[in-house]
Structures are given as structure tokens and as C-alpha cells.
Amino acid sequence: MRITCLHTAASNIAVFEAAAKALGIAPDTLRHEVRADLLAAAELAGGLTEGITQSTVAVLLALEPHADAVLLTCSTLGPAVESIARTSRVPILRTDEALAFAAVQADGNVVVLCAVETTLEPTSTLFHRAALRAGTRVDVQLVPGAWEQFKAGDIDGYLATIAQAADRAYVEGASIVALAQASMGEAAALVTAGPPPLTSATSGLRAAMKALVG
């Protein structure tokens, strides 16, 4: 069994490997492709363009022949999956879609935290669509300054900023917090004001395993 992950940050490899180990997924199941240029292009363009979508689709389809499932781990690029998900030879999944499905199962207020501004629109669309089906209320928020810390290489500061935002959301009444981007996942262990936030790595890998078993 092989699950290939398309990342836009090399640091997400360790995040997904750790999530796989915690879920009991066999070693060497995951393969990783990193295309930081795709997210960089989206940031430069102010969001996902048709050209970047086509480039992302091309990469996903190139990974398909060598995988039993493909996971797109970047929430900014997530909508690119929609045009090929139903026609692909193997499951091609968005980790953020799996996260959205898991988050809206919770009763009460769901707060979704984003670090990258370019992911606000696709993440809001995805989570509000899932919430509408489930009858749940969601609030999608940007964590100011976090992505600048990440790009500067201050990963400890980045994770601390995310955790502080999650703690603040719990204090203000959130029932569950979801961390919209894979790079945010390790901040979940730093949260103290409520249950560990949901992460896209764990949700995405669970969805991939379910699709393969199914």
C-alpha cells in the first residue's frame, strides 16, 4: 500500500510521518512530493489561479500511477482536486476536506484557524459547505503574523502563535478548534484551554485509509 502526499512545504513530511505513526499506519506507506513553487505562485498571485490549478492537477495526475491514494496536503491548492477526484484511477483527496468533515461532527461552535491568507477563501468555502450539510456553525479565522514567522524559519514561534490562538478560541467559547493547514499540526500538543485541535494530517490520512479499505 502506498499513499503519496503532495506538499508545498518540506517540513510537512515529518508532520505526516508522525501522524501516520500515531495512527498505526505501517512504516514506508507514505511517499512525499514537495512543490513549494505552487504555493509561492499562489501567494504571489493573491490566490489560486486557473494556471496554478492546472499545474497542480498535472502534478497530482503524474503521481497517480505510482500510488494507491494521493493526498493533497495544501489547503490553498485544495480546490484543484475537485476537477479530477471523480475520474482518477486512485483516490485523490484533499486533507482539508477530510478535516472539514471531521470538524463539523462536533456540536456547538467550530473555530477554524488559518495561517496563510491565500487559504482563507478556499478554506471558508469548504468548511461552510460542510457546516451547511451538518447544521453546524463554523468561524474561519486568520492567525495574524503566524505565516511570517513560518517563512522566517521561526517554527517554535509559529507553533506557539497558533497554540495561543487556539487557546483564545476555546476561552471565547469554541467547542472544537480545527487547524486548517498541515504545517500547524504540531501546535495541537501545545493547546491547554480545551481539547487538542483537529489536524489535517490525521484527518487526511484517516480518509485515505478509509478510501483504500473501502
Score class of each variant (00 low, 15 high):
133 R>W: 09
41 A>Q: 14
168 R>G: 02
90 V>A: 07
4 T>N: 02
202 T>F: 04
90 V>P: 00
142 L>E: 05
73 T>K: 01
4 T>Q: 08
150 F>S: 04
184 M>T: 00
82 E>Y: 08
90 V>W: 06
137 R>I: 09
152 A>V: 10
138 V>Y: 07
97 E>D: 12
127 F>C: 01
116 V>Q: 06
186 E>D: 15
88 S>F: 04
109 N>H: 14
197 P>K: 05
87 T>N: 06
139 D>Y: 06
214 G>Q: 15
190 L>N: 07
148 E>S: 14
191 V>N: 05
118 T>N: 09
192 T>W: 08
132 L>Y: 09
71 L>D: 01
212 L>D: 02
110 V>F: 09
85 A>P: 02
200 S>F: 05
154 D>N: 15
64 E>P: 08
125 T>K: 13
96 D>T: 13
169 A>F: 03
59 V>K: 08
112 V>Y: 01
164 Q>E: 13
95 T>P: 05
203 S>T: 11
18 A>D: 10
114 C>W: 05
155 I>H: 09
115 A>G: 10
129 R>N: 11
95 T>N: 10
46 G>D: 07
13 I>P: 01
58 A>T: 11
26 A>N: 02
135 G>Q: 14
46 G>N: 12
197 P>H: 11
63 L>D: 07
114 C>N: 14
16 F>Q: 01
49 T>F: 09
170 Y>I: 07
105 Q>I: 08
155 I>L: 13
52 I>K: 09
208 A>P: 01
67 A>W: 05
195 P>M: 14
56 T>L: 13
10 A>K: 09
182 A>K: 00
17 E>I: 01
12 N>E: 14
205 L>A: 07
133 R>P: 01
105 Q>M: 13
135 G>I: 09
123 T>R: 02
2 R>L: 06
131 A>K: 11
99 L>T: 02
43 E>H: 06
1 M>S: 05
195 P>H: 11
50 E>T: 13
170 Y>C: 07
186 E>R: 15
78 G>S: 15
108 G>K: 11
50 E>H: 10
206 R>G: 06
213 V>H: 15
63 L>T: 09
93 L>G: 00
159 L>W: 03
132 L>M: 11
203 S>N: 12
124 S>I: 10
180 A>G: 12
10 A>P: 01
158 Y>G: 02
32 H>A: 04
119 T>F: 03
64 E>V: 06
206 R>S: 15
85 A>D: 03
118 T>C: 06
22 A>P: 02
33 E>I: 10
140 V>H: 05
103 A>F: 13
105 Q>W: 13
144 P>I: 08
12 N>H: 07
106 A>S: 14
195 P>V: 15
130 A>G: 06
184 M>G: 00
212 L>C: 04
204 G>I: 00
108 G>C: 11
110 V>S: 05
146 A>P: 02
93 L>Q: 05
30 L>C: 05
32 H>C: 04
76 T>Q: 12
116 V>D: 00
92 I>V: 15
